[in-house]
Nucleic acid binder design. Structure first.
Length: 286
DNA sequence: GATATTTGACCTCC
DNA sequence: GGAGGTCAAATATC
């Protein structure tokens, strides 16, 4: 695990949220990028394997990873936009309003499959109304928020354990957002069912990058064995690589770096530190 | 020493 | 009573 940030660094004073038009521009460009990645994937599939000296599959895997990263980031940005629209002046209790999740083409895996979301309401532990969003993704870690794991459970009739995360700022900022992740299958890459409950009220998406640290605790870490199955291979989950595995699949890292570059270029959250590439690769995640 | 993760125990709901 | 969700002490990491 990467070095953890001192508490003072992890609790920066909140910078002003980016202007909505800037965020919209980022969303727009990410959408374009996602579409282009899909097109590129289709084009690659049309190229005969022999013409690429057997590297077509590698290229396809890279493009898929890129597409998934783009889609996940789109989802995160869109979620945050809703946050500003819906909760801008509301209390921090979260979960009060419906999470009208924008459907995203997340995943973008071959055949057009990807994140499949649906939003539904359910009752919380104490009867309070909760809104939960469920989607399937191959990159459950790429949503840009800082999640802290608080539990893990073997689920009946499932060979995979369910992982429980809450917002890393649940205490500091009373953010009620939670995330449940459960592997669905042993596909390559495997798909994960991600359940999000409550909206983030912490406004910390991509915000708390330390200016000089080589680490961050911003994003969910799936590098632990807890989420992996014996069948998970190097294609799993784009950025879930441990340090010692990095060299094996550099292409995955590359897609994550591309993603971070996009985010920086649009200044979605201005103080992202370019000098911390490991912020986005497996080694730097938490 | 500070912080995150693990994991068994506990709580609540059905 | 069983299953899912959460808590919190122990442990790991930096």
């Amino acid at each position: 695990m990467a070095r953890r940030l001192p508490k003072s660094e992890r609790s920066p004073s909140l910078p002003p949220p980016p202007p909505s038009d800037q965020r919209d521009a980022a969303i727009q460009e990410l959408s374009k990028g996602s579409e282009l990645a899909t097109q590129l994937m289709a084009q690659l599939e049309l190229i005969p394997e022999r013409e690429l000296d057997g590297r077509r599959d590698d290229a396809l895997a890279n493009v898929r990873s890129l597409s998934m990263s783009l889609s996940s980031s789109l989802y995160a940005l869109r979620s945050e936009r809703r946050e500003h629209h819906n909760c801008g002046s509301s209390s921090s209790s979260g979960g009060a309003g419906p999470a009208a999740v924008t459907s995203v083409s997340g995943g973008g895996r071959g055949g057009g499959s990807g994140a499949r979301n649906k939003t539904k309401r359910r009752r919380g532990k104490h009867g309070e109304e909760l809104t939960e969003t469920v989607f399937i993704t191959t990159t459950p870690e790429n949503d840009g928020f800082h999640w802290r794991k608080y539990g893990e459970k073997k689920i009946l009739d499932s060979e995979f354990r369910k992982l429980y995360y809450r917002c890393g700022y649940s205490d500091e900022r009373k953010c009620q957002a939670k995330k449940y992740v459960q592997q669905e299958n042993n596909k390559h890459p495997p798909e994960f069912r991600v359940t999000l409950t409550n909206e983030h009220t912490c406004n910390t998406l991509f915000q708390d990058q330390p200016s000089s640290s080589s680490t961050n605790s911003q994003v969910l870490d799936f590098t632990k064995a807890s989420i992996s199955s014996p069948l998970m291979d190097s294609h799993v989950g784009a950025t879930i690589l441990k340090k010692e595995e990095e060299e094996e699949v550099p292409s995955i890292d590359e897609s994550s770096r591309i993603m971070s570059t996009i985010m920086r270029n649009y200044g979605a959250y201005g103080d992202y530190d370019e000098s911390s590439p490991q912020s986005w690769n497996g080694a730097g995640w938490q």
